[in-house]
Design a protein around this nucleic acid. Structure first.
Length: 415
RNA sequence: GGAGGGUUAGCCAAGUGGUCUAAGGCGAUUGUUUCGAAAACAGUUGGGUCGCAAGACCCGCAGAGGUUCGAAUCCUCUACCCUCCGCCA
């Protein structure tokens, strides 16, 4: 959520930001109304509580005073639940206001207004084979068994496919560990507060998360959920900041209604694993940390030798949480186009407000800033590696940096 | 699964119905002092409402209910932590 003070003091500016993000500016007026109603009742309730406290600490206790105490108790019995209700309405309204976009984010409505920032590597236009075809002939990806046993959108990786996934994860964690990140293996399930607090409720708010029983637990869509939650309700020491984590987890996404030729094969699946970067920083450091995340993503993908381009999201394509966001898109010969492989967002203090993550600096406590970024989501990495590394003879060359983890330099057939 | 003990502010910790307006200590931070520092002393160190401000008030003792004129304190439920027993490895 954003700071209510900002809305109270500068509602026009907030509306402008909300409009830029493509949300309804009426949300802002709703918040102000709810805030007003809530404050009016607070004044009433506080006055009654004050009187109650005075009565309770009075030197002399008389029948009259005790009678007044009983009256106050009755009044509060009706007013306090009303206040609670108004507070909830206020919180809900406030929670629907998206984070303000950074001034640096290009203004725009949707995908078509995103900005290409840079391009690295030379796509090999001669290659056009699809990872599904390659994976099938090498015997390393099996979607048929996945849909038999689990359902559509699930798959088996086997043989070198399994080794490749683990190689990517291990290389990724080591890569980040060497660059100051703490590797973490996180829970794959989290409570509602966390998967909602990190904002996996997009504009359409179609459910994205698999929920387990009525347990209030959901399968995480990303380790961002559990990494952000790691320091929930804490006050961090500013000297310990920034804190940088490299989380490895499975990710589960319902992806309802997301079928089509661009969602083919491993590109859009219901379960995958991912190495995720996450940082908690001081307010003034989030921007440089975010840019650092982008650099690390580039360095990582360059080390794999995969051609990519960097896209900066325009305001309309930032989502609720992000103030600024960059994606890396790898060249994928099978589709003859670039496809998203990473995404890094600066959510400033938006997530931290939801999850109550602060830091103390001097005699001030402030909300921390949180930054997230994909290092590698393994299925899409596998697409890029298979399709770009395919040789004439049908084998696939493994990027050099992964060879130590695989114990071989190419994939020839499944074993 | 059973039985007991526990959860107080950034951390440690006192407090078993009414000056608790939550003691004290540590840490952090600001000021005084100093050439500078240390030490010492003084202040600040959860959230909210009203107010131009000075300030005033409300809430907050794991969470949610309840008893009472009055709850950190008594009662009920829930979560989590610890110890022992059982079970499994």
């Amino acid at each position: 959520m954003i700071d209510i003070q900002l809305i109270r003091n500068n509602s026009e500016k907030v509306k402008e930001s909300v409009r830029k993000k493509g949300y309804d500016t009426g949300l802002v007026d709703k918040v102000l109304e709810a805030d007003k109603a809530r404050r009016e009742l607070i004044v009433k309730v506080d006055a009654l509580r004050k009187e109650r406290n005075e009565i309770a600490s009075a030197e002399q206790r008389t029948k009259d005073i005790e009678q007044r105490g009983r009256e106050i108790k009755e009044e509060l019995k009706t007013l306090e639940p009303q206040l609670k209700e108004l507070e909830e309405q206020f919180e809900n309204a406030l929670g629907q206001i998206p984070n303000l976009p950074s001034d640096k984010a290009p203004t725009g409505k949707g995908e078509e207004d995103n900005k290409e920032v840079s391009v690295w590597g030379e796509p090999d236009k001669a290659k056009s084979k699809d990872h599904l075809e390659i994976g099938k002939s090498l015997g390393i990806i099996d979607f048929e068994a996945g849909s038999k046993v689990t359902g559509s959108g699930f798959y088996y990786l086997k043989g070198d496919g399994a080794l490749l996934e683990l190689a990517l994860a291990q290389y990724g964690l080591k890569f980040l560990n060497e660059r100051g990140f703490t590797p973490v293996i996180t829970p794959d399930l989290a409570q509602k507060r966390f998967y909602e607090g990190t904002g996996y409720l997009p504009k359409g708010d179609e459910a994205q998360t698999y929920v387990v029983n009525d347990n209030d637990l959901g399968l995480v869509a990303t380790a961002e959920v559990t990494l952000a939650g790691y320091h929930a309700d804490e006050v961090l020491n500013s000297k310990e900041l920034p804190k940088k984590y490299a989380g490895y987890s499975h990710c589960f996404r319902m992806e309802s209604g997301a079928y089509g030729k661009y969602s083919k094969g491993l590109y859009r699946v219901h379960q995958f694993s991912k190495v995720e970067m996450f940082a908690f920083t001081k307010a003034e450091e989030s921007e440089s940390m975010h840019e650092g995340f982008l650099k690390l993503e580039e360095e990582f993908w360059q080390s794999l030798g995969i051609p990519y381009r960097v896209i900066e999201m325009c305001t309309g394509d930032l989502g609720a949480q992000a103030a600024r966001k960059f994606d890396l898109e790898a060249w994928m010969p099978g589709r003859g186009d670039y496809g998203e492989i990473t995404s890094t967002s600066n959510t400033t203090d938006y997530q931290a407000r939801n999850l109550n993550i602060k830091y103390r600096e001097g005699d001030e406590t402030k909300f921390a800033h949180t930054i997230n970024g994909t290092l590698v989501a393994t299925p899409r990495a596998i697409i890029a590696i298979l399709e770009n590394g395919l040789q004439e003879d049908g084998s696939v060359v493994i990027p050099e940096v992964l060879r130590p983890y695989m114990g071989k330099d190419r994939i020839t057939s499944s074993r």
